Simulated assay, not measured.
Amino acid sequence: MSNIAVIAAAEGEDINPLVPATYDIVWSLVCVAVIGFFFWKYILPKFQQVLADRSDQIEGGIKRAEEAQTEAKAALEQYRAQLADARTEAAAIREDARTQGQQIINEMKVQAQEESDRIVAAGSSQLAAQRQQIVAELRSDLGRTAVDLAEKVIGESLADDVKRAGTIDRFLSELDTVSADSANGK
């Protein structure tokens, strides 16, 4: 560079060291034009294709995400509707179970009352039968005792069954009238 500056100084030209020579500018422009042509012809279309593919992928991903979000919202609404239906159905089942339980309890109460009434009626009839049996036994025992006492008082034997039966019946009828009178308060 110093040789060129010396030569240029000798010729009387004022040379700026910051400005390159004309031939350098021309050859640089030719190289830039060739590289620009190859870049514009081969690299730029590939680059634009890659950008377009990425743009399509991004837009398609966004579109798919929006569709998935819409489907998820629809599924969520369907799930909520099914859940509400299930809750309603569960409430109805609980109410039916409560009603059936109450009906079963009422039926069991009715059956228990009927069984209780049947047992009480059977007990009452059994008690009445036992009472009649005891009264009959007591009458025969009382009759025998009365005959024995009457034999001792009278001093004669009342062994005759017909007499004994008549005496016992008469005594018991008198006893019934006395019992009835005392029950009536006379």
Rank of each mutant, 00 (worst) to 15 (best):
L76I: 09
V6P: 00
V110H: 13
Q111L: 12
S179L: 14
S55K: 12
R139Y: 04
Q100F: 03
T70S: 08
A97L: 15
V110E: 15
K186H: 11
Q111D: 01
I25P: 04
E114V: 11
V178H: 15
Q57Y: 08
S28E: 10
L158N: 05
D85W: 00
D85A: 15
G61K: 01
S157R: 06
Q100A: 10
Q57G: 09
L172D: 01
I105F: 00
Q78R: 15
R118D: 00
R98K: 14
A128F: 11
K41I: 00
G155H: 02
S157P: 00
L18S: 12
D181S: 09
R139L: 09
P17N: 02
A183C: 01
L83D: 08
A91M: 07
S2Y: 13
A91S: 11
N3H: 00
A121W: 09
I15D: 05
V120E: 09
G60I: 07
G185Y: 10
Q82D: 03
V34D: 05
C31Y: 05
I35V: 12
A112N: 03
A121K: 15
Q49C: 06
S116G: 00
I105K: 04
R144L: 14
I58C: 05
Q111H: 03
T99M: 07
D181V: 04
L83P: 02
L158I: 04
A33I: 10
D176Y: 03
I15A: 03
I105V: 06
I15N: 09
Q111I: 02
D181L: 12
Q113R: 13
Q69C: 12
F171L: 12
V50W: 12
V6G: 11
K109V: 15
I154M: 10
A146M: 07
K152T: 05
A92R: 14
L29I: 01
D176S: 06
G155P: 00
L142G: 10
I134Q: 07
E107Y: 02
L18P: 02
R54E: 05
S182H: 11
K63L: 04
Q48F: 00
S140H: 15
L175S: 06
I25K: 05
A86W: 10
Q130F: 01
Q133R: 11
F171Y: 02
D117F: 04
D160K: 03
R87H: 06
A129E: 12
F47K: 04
V32Y: 14
R144S: 13
I93R: 11
Y23V: 14
R87I: 03
A165H: 01
E77T: 13
Q100E: 02
R144G: 13
A91V: 04
E174T: 09
E13H: 00
K63C: 01
P20W: 06
R87Q: 02
A81T: 15
G155K: 07
S125K: 15
S124M: 10
I105E: 13
E59H: 05
E107G: 02
G123C: 07
R87S: 07
V50H: 09
K109A: 10
N3A: 06
K73C: 04
L18D: 09
L175H: 10
G166R: 02
A8T: 13
S182R: 13
T70E: 11
E137L: 14
L149M: 09
A10H: 08
Q57H: 14
